[in-house]
Amino acid sequence: MRATFSSDTVSLELTGPLQRLVGQGEVQLSASGGRLGELLAALVEHCPEAQEHLTSAAELRQASGPLPPGFLVVRDGTTVPARLETPVHPGEKLTLLSIISGG
């Protein structure tokens, strides 16, 4: 997982249980795949513990379909479709917001 920002990466903010599992609030991931599924597969490859919430990198690289339940994807303060095929763009920042339930 690259620690510094570069223009060919996406900055992915993590929250809730996934942030706790990964141990970082924000990670830089390659945007080369151009799709959210590829981005999350890269996250799982760099931090295998994330598979507990996100399933395997192979499944995340599937062509299309919803993300595993329990996440909102936020770009510029607005949710975007939480789907594997959602486009991602180099240099942007996304938030993978874990839906929480504690009371």
Partner: peptide, 15 residues
Amino acid sequence: LVPEVPVGWKRRFPV
């Protein structure tokens, strides 16, 4: 927002 119980969700939460 939550179609079903999230994968990997745990009953106990830090609070």
